[in-house]
Design a protein around this nucleic acid. Structure first.
Lengths: 204, 204
DNA sequence: ACCTGAACACCGTTCAAGT
DNA sequence: ACCTGAACACCGTTCAAGT
């Protein structure tokens, strides 16, 4: 006996839940069907195939990442606050963001951010190609940082080489540096510091 | 009749070739066996299973990315040249670098670079935690940029939203900016400009 | 020590058949 | 219009058997 009619939304919701909890590899058509209580083949009616199902999930994520508003009084402060807000949102959806990245849509996801950046560098008095460079540099900086940071978190235990590195000449010469690099980085602090440094140069 | 003895190196070389040409998804145990002219199961004798075969390829790539030497007279110039050399090397092995990234070993691959950066920020007169911050900020900047850049290149045709963005108020107010952002970015130029801006701030 | 084919448990997808 | 099970061509891996 057929089950009550499935909807495309129901399929996408359940698929998104599987991806959020266990990553995209855990999304098999058979597991999804089991979760939905339907035959595997019913899914095909609603979403085509596995690839376009993933496409749809990615598209939904891109849409969701729209509305982050900067705060602060100076353009520099507003750019930094935008960057920090963005980083927070991205980090709340790691698997889905990774999928957006793998689908090559990171840039499109950042269109609203770019629009805001244009407004702020303009307010800071930059014009023309100088303004365009600043917008692009900040955008690359933000996206790049989050990608690297995610990678660090997924990394397995660091190899011994990490500590070895600071036992040589550097440690004798500058023990404070050696200690600082031996400690794990504080990503939030490093992120803010990096964006501030870049923005200071670019808006100068 | 059994074929002449396979070696682990031969398996790794052939696997690396398949990955370089068609990406990691094209590396199936059956295709690899066909390429080697052996039975599928012979591969397991030499490399364990598919996962540890991929691990071995990643490890090889990490080792290969060791020796990039900076040039230039000032620390800032040397850091920029290091960054540019690194970017070039990374871009020569896109699939393998993506695999290193996915295995969470990007950071480990960058240990030699970090060592060089320490030397240069030191030469610039930075000490202690200030030096550590500078090293980390530059490293994140370089790695992040290359990851974002790769993503851009893989991206499918941009959605119409890209052009729409610059037809509004901004275009009227600052046509030079609108034109600059409508043109495709020059990544090499943007990269150099970004690293220079960051380094200028950090070493100031 | 190393190579082999058969077999197993998975996977995405297609298809003909239901209602 | 939508759901279904059977079947197909793949996949990684295990195993018992060769030499």
């Amino acid at each position: 006996m057929p089950r009550a009619a499935l909807t495309r939304e129901e399929v996408l919701d359940t698929a998104a839940e599987l991806v959020k909890q266990h990553g995209p590899d855990a999304l098999t058509m058979r597991k999804l069907a089991a979760e939905l209580g339907s035959a595997v083949t019913s899914i095909y009616w609603h979403v085509g195939n596995r690839e376009s199902l993933l496409d749809a999930l990615v598209e939904r994520t891109v849409q969701e990442m729209g509305a982050i508003r900067p705060t602060g009084r100076t353009p520099a402060a507003r750019i930094v606050s935008l960057a920090r807000g963005l980083r927070r949102e991205l980090r709340a959806r790691p698997h889905l963001i990774a999928m957006v990245h793998e689908h090559g849509l990171t840039e499109r996801m950042f269109l609203p951010v770019r629009r805001t950046l244009v407004r702020e560098v303009h307010a800071a008095g930059l014009r023309g190609s100088r303004a365009a460079d600043a917008v692009r540099a900040v955008q690359f900086q933000i996206v790049g940082f989050v990608l690297v940071e995610r990678n660090r978190e997924r990394a397995p235990v660091q190899s011994p080489a990490e500590e070895e590195l600071w036992t040589g000449a550097t440690a004798d010469e500058d023990p404070a540096l050696a200690r600082a690099l031996a400690r794990p980085a504080d990503p939030e602090r490093l992120f803010t510091l990096s964006v501030e440094a870049l923005v200071t140069s670019l808006l100068a």
